[in-house]
Design a binder for these strands. Structure first.
Length: 270
DNA sequence: ATTTGCCGCAGGGGATGGTA
DNA sequence: TACCATCCCCTGCGGCAAAT
């Protein structure tokens, strides 16, 4: 089982090979053809099963896990409805009054002929160059947006909210989201601050720099999970936000003076 | 399966000056 | 005064190979 994430891209993509990325910057509308995708946003776990149509909100943090079908492997079609596209769309097709959007990052839609036929109609455009099919792909994106609005009018508020994240409480946000592997600059954006204001506020509240705090917090979490035999080092490093097992091993030993697999019998606590 | 050693370079940290 | 952009130095992240 590989660890995937939602890649960001413009237009249309036949998704067979997901890269590891914890941040989803744009709205994604998709169809899971084979296999399934487990998405954990830290608050809720969503299971996108074979044959499922789904929508995923922009500016989301999530860890994804790809599960292969024994016979067919894994594949999905994803459409990225970017802010650039939606702003252009909203100028030509005025959104009506919206309703209050739901809090869930992922919405799963029941199958309807409209969705089935739409995703079947994408087949000729999959993995084609944007230049050759630009107009047709753009028409398909507009069609996708209209279908979403037709089936779920409450989507207007989500799709046409072009605002940036508001300034929010650093302590609770970082404590909830340190497991996601994001750059400090991304954390600053998501907490509604410039990079320099983020560093300043962080120092005031944590008496530490963001990078150092993140590593220590992730290692502390890893320590607890390994110590309690919840996970092995090869599983835990991804869970707590490291990308690389060898680097995780180095960082762990630097802080605790012992390698990850050595703490179960040898050390009493951090 | 996990740790260790090594390397290149992206990006974090800190300082500084600009702007509203 | 608060907030932001930018610059430069250098740390440490991620990748790879080899050892354990």
């Amino acid at each position: 089982m590989e660890l995937p994430t939602l890649q960001h891209f413009d237009g249309l993509k036949h998704n067979k090979n997901w890269a590891n990325e914890d941040f989803i910057p744009e709205h994604i509308f998709g169809y899971q053809i084979f296999g399934s995708t487990i998405i954990d946003d830290g608050k809720k776990v969503y299971e996108i099963n074979e044959g499922t149509y789904f929508f995923s909100n922009r500016n989301s943090l999530a860890k994804g896990t790809k599960k292969f079908s024994p016979t067919e492997g894994y594949s999905s079609i994803c459409i990225c409805l970017s802010q650039k596209f939606l702003k252009t769309f909203s100028m030509t097709c005025l959104p009506a009054d919206g309703q209050v959007p739901g809090k869930d990052m992922v919405i799963v839609f029941p199958e309807t002929p409209l969705l089935t036929n739409y995703f079947q109609s994408l087949t000729p455009y999959i993995n084609r160059s944007e230049e050759d099919f630009k107009d047709l792909i753009d028409a398909k994106l507009r069609e996708a947006t209209l279908i979403l609005l037709k089936l779920h009018p409450e989507m207007r508020t989500r799709l046409f909210d072009f605002g940036n994240p508001e300034k929010i409480d650093l302590k609770s946000y970082m404590e909830s989201n340190f497991r996601f592997n994001l750059s400090v600059e991304r954390f600053s954006y998501l907490t509604g601050r410039s990079l320099s204001s983020f560093k300043k506020d962080f120092e005031e509240q944590f008496h530490d720099t963001p990078g150092k705090w993140l590593v220590r917090r992730r290692l502390k979490e890893a320590y607890m999970l390994i110590k309690r035999n919840v996970m092995r080092p090869s599983e835990v490093y991804l869970k707590v936000g490291f990308e690389n097992l060898s680097h995780f091993s180095h960082a762990f030993k630097k802080v605790y003076g012992v390698s990850p697999s050595g703490i179960v019998e040898r050390v009493s606590g951090p």
